[in-house]
Design a protein around this nucleic acid. Sequence first.
DNA 1: ATTTGACCAGAAATAAATAATCGGTCAAAC
DNA 2: GTTTGACCGATTATTTATTTCTGGTCAAAT
Lengths: 234, 234
Amino acid sequence: MGIKAQKSENKPREKRILEATARLLLRYGYDKMTMSDIAEEAGISKGAIYLHYDSKETLVDALITRQSIAYADDIMTLLEQDMDSWSFVTLYQLAMRLIPRYPLLIGLIRNNKNIFGTYFQRTALDMFHLKRRSRPEFLQLMQQAGVIRADLDLKLAAYTLDYMAYGLLTIEDIIPPEEAPPFEDVVNFFGEILEKTFTPPDGGNKEAGKAILMQLIAAYKAQLVAREETSDKE
Amino acid sequence: MGIKAQKSENKPREKRILEATARLLLRYGYDKMTMSDIAEEAGISKGAIYLHYDSKETLVDALITRQSIAYADDIMTLLEQDMDSWSFVTLYQLAMRLIPRYPLLIGLIRNNKNIFGTYFQRTALDMFHLKRRSRPEFLQLMQQAGVIRADLDLKLAAYTLDYMAYGLLTIEDIIPPEEAPPFEDVVNFFGEILEKTFTPPDGGNKEAGKAILMQLIAAYKAQLVAREETSDKE
DNA sequence: ATTTGACCAGAAATAAATAATCGGTCAAAC
DNA sequence: GTTTGACCGATTATTTATTTCTGGTCAAAT
């Protein structure tokens, strides 16, 4: 494992391949998008793609990993900006506010067959951290730090966060976006709900909570980066 | 319109047809379920079905209407029982608590193609009140009665109720039910969230709110019954 | 008056044969 | 060392012909 011929180090080209793939995935979907399409969109030859990735599948794997990292980065950046007004809720609010920047990740979470088609049958989905849900263990750390109400059942809280987030991402199947209130407002109210329901009245030790949080996100990102670096097949 | 040959008044048989249809819809789905299947399951001949319904489509229309009425009845019954401990939230909590009794209605709300298949292409979906979402106008009445916080943006509130309910009904696509907390707990917590977020601190005039509510549900049910009675095609 | 089930035409499924496409390779070009 | 694109086997799509099935009807039976 890992002694496969190493891949090209031509980073700019790699980036263009990934960007082309992202565009075409959204436009055509996994099954209709051909490797030739990608090459053309990226302005290179088909063979060049295989200088970077072993297969169509691993290419999409890499794209997803890349976007997950970017998403985590986005969240961390804005979390740091929000240093002063931070609460436990900020993380979830940011996660919702920023996810529209990554329609592919939305497609992943939603199991959008239009976008991913047979890719879902080929790849072990749960390898992606994204597919995993809010972990009660994480909430427990937050609770111990005092930024989540002590009397909250954490499995219930995690489940609630999950279905709210999922509902927010899928409700467009029922309500056309043009009938929806501004997304910004929806996310703000979402945060208000969490604040009123999950946060203890006194607010808890916000600094401690935030420290733990940043640590966890950094660990998560490190995990993603590690996967990106061992992207050669076994 | 309406001068079509009137249908059989054999109510017990009608009921058995509808029950058979409900079972087979869930087992086979609309497209795989044949009229002969239904006849056999109901223990009658195929022709007998057409003594009650003009087509497969109107049969399913009728079934949905029937179940919608039953659902509304269930809610009203339990609302009346809850006379004393009532709050604005009770309605939504009951609606969620009772909906699992009506898997077909869940399928409708979710646009479950497994169950309804091509039926969705044939029928104007929005004829079903169920498909319509929380109406801000309804919330406005509740707000005027004082059982909803005065400072709440009602379009936002309606949208939030919608995506929460939708998320609750669809999250099983992501989280297998056996990993979920007891549904009863989830619904209770759902109610707690609404209570904390939507209800004014003083609780408002609950009697007034409840009176309006019962009136609206009765009107809704009357509308459904009316449709059931004019179920002959134009 | 009711109820049935054989029957019909159109729709849908199946099968077979053929054509087109695509993921991936690698000798040749650069 | 890099990059390319013609090429290959396998999968997938298209076409055509054939068969089966199904929603709906109605003359006959009850």
